[in-house]
C-alpha cells in the first residue's frame, strides 16, 4: 500500500509500480477522470503525456507533473505528495474567491469555510510554537 497526500486528503492506493494507478484510484487521488481523450475534470480534458498510460493504468505522477504541479515521494516510495504548482495557485489567488478548506476542531468535528457564505469571515492564524 502507498499513501498519497493530495489536495483532497490522504488516500491509500495500491500502485502497480511507482504511481501507476487504476482509473478509479487515479480519479480518487487527483479528481481527474481517465477517458480515451485524456484526463478530464469538469468540462476540460488534458491529453496524457506520451508513455503515461497503458491499458487500465495511468502514471499519475507523470500526469501531475505534466500539469505543472510538484510531485514528491519518500525514500521508500511509500508516501507521495501531489502538490499544487505556482501557476495554479496564482490563478486561484488572482480570482479572489476564498480557497475552501475543511479542518477539524478540538473534538475532531470538521468545519468547512464555504459553509459561512453570507457572513463576513475574519480568517486568522496562530500557533503554539
Amino acid at each position: 500500500m502507498v499513501i498519497v497526500l493530495g489536495q483532497s486528503g490522504e488516500h491509500a492506493v495500491a500502485p502497480a509500480e511507482g504511481l501507476w494507478l487504476t482509473a478509479a484510484d487515479a480519479q480518487r487521488v487527483t479528481g481527474w477522470t481517465p477517458k480515451p481523450e485524456g484526463m478530464c475534470c469538469d468540462d476540460s480534458c488534458v491529453p496524457l503525456p506520451a508513455g503515461a498510460t497503458r491499458p487500465g493504468h495511468v502514471d499519475v505522477a507523470a500526469f501531475w507533473q505534466f500539469l505543472g504541479n510538484p510531485v514528491l515521494h519518500d525514500d521508500a516510495g511509500e508516501t507521495w505528495v501531489l502538490g499544487v504548482g505556482a501557476e495554479a495557485r496564482n490563478t486561484q489567488l488572482a480570482g479572489l474567491e476564498a480557497p475552501d478548506f475543511t479542518l477539524p476542531d478540538l473534538d475532531g468535528v470538521p468545519h468547512t469555510l464555504s459553509a459561512l457564505r453570507g457572513r463576513k469571515v475574519f480568517l486568522t492564524t496562530w500557533a503554539s510554537w
Partner: peptide, 26 residues
C-alpha cells in the same frame, strides 16, 4: 477554532507567519 496540522491554510492563502489574517466578504 480549527487545527491545521498540514498548514494547508498557509499554502492556500500564501501565508508566511502567524498571526496573519485574510478578510472574506459575504
Amino acid at each position: 477554532c480549527l487545527i491545521d496540522a498540514d498548514h494547508c491554510v498557509a499554502d492556500l492563502y500564501g501565508m508566511v507567519n502567524v498571526p496573519q489574517a485574510v478578510w472574506i466578504d459575504e
